[in-house]
Design a protein around this nucleic acid. Structure first.
Lengths: 144, 144
DNA sequence: TTAAGTGCAAATTATTTGCAGTAAG
DNA sequence: CTTACTGCAAATAATTTGCACTTAA
């Protein structure tokens, strides 16, 4: 077994994460940041799901602040917004371009193994335009 | 020059299109269907954009009916819903899986040349799940 | 001390729905 | 005739915003 299964040494603290984007470490932001990057795993959340996660910790952050803070994290480049479902906005702590699974039955988003995606060529951008992002979303349904 | 530049012979009439899905050819549906498949081109619309297109023809169809009818066309398999922007729902008359360009500046959706997209391998679905659809969205920004 | 952050309630926006009237088969 | 379709106005749902209060620097 490797020495550092959980990659503790490279784990980013909520504190550092906020600091790296020059965002003030308020109590609310610390609570959210901790839920988002506290264990070093990539997270995919909606405002609502994150709000529920906060409540499970016993802490208090208003729903409006969850919305505003997720926006702030995106503006600061700490997270990326992912559009998969017209009714909800999802946010990803992994800001690199990578494919996603969207579990249609549950409305849940997760990473797809990017090493299993091999794209040889993508359509080139029409003249006058450049590619800002390429989304690959693999929509899943549970077997019957 | 080829004999049939506009592919007239294969062009589907609004009438036939509705008929093929056993949908009653009401005046409103005929107006919308005509705008959607009348010239044999694939169309990408939002409820709002289609509603405006209707008004340009001088015809009248209520916005609610545009919404309901687009839903009905999707339910009948005549169109596909495409999710690219959390604030608006887009519909495509081309029901086959194919890549899209999304012009972020204008909020416009169009087909990307699918022959320029070469995907060698996509992540396999986790056990218990099957792939229902793979979306490839190439987001574009105008230069400078 | 002061600019930024927070929370509430109200506003906004896209879409859906209830229902009474209209039209297609 | 009878069931599906349409249109309006009201309902819904996710997200944003105005503003008075609080807090980090």
């Amino acid at each position: 077994m490797p020495a550092d299964v959980n990659n503790t040494s490279r784990r980013i603290t909520a504190q550092n994460w906020l600091q790296s984007a020059s965002l003030r470490p308020t109590r609310q932001r610390m609570v959210l940041a901790d839920l988002l990057v506290g264990d070093g795993q990539d997270r995919h959340v909606s405002a609502e799901s994150l709000y529920c996660a906060v409540q499970d910790t016993g802490e208090t952050v208003s729903l409006a602040t969850v919305y505003n803070t997720l926006r702030a994290f995106c503006d600061a480049g700490l997270m990326k917004e992912i559009t998969v479902d017209g009714n909800k906005t999802y946010f990803d702590t992994n800001t690199h371009d990578h494919p996603h699974y969207f579990w249609e039955d549950e409305g849940r988003l997760s990473d797809a193994p990017s090493e299993q995606l091999e794209i040889l060529r993508i359509p080139e951008p029409p003249k006058g335009a450049r590619i800002s992002k390429v989304d690959v979303i693999i929509r899943l349904r549970s077997d019957e």
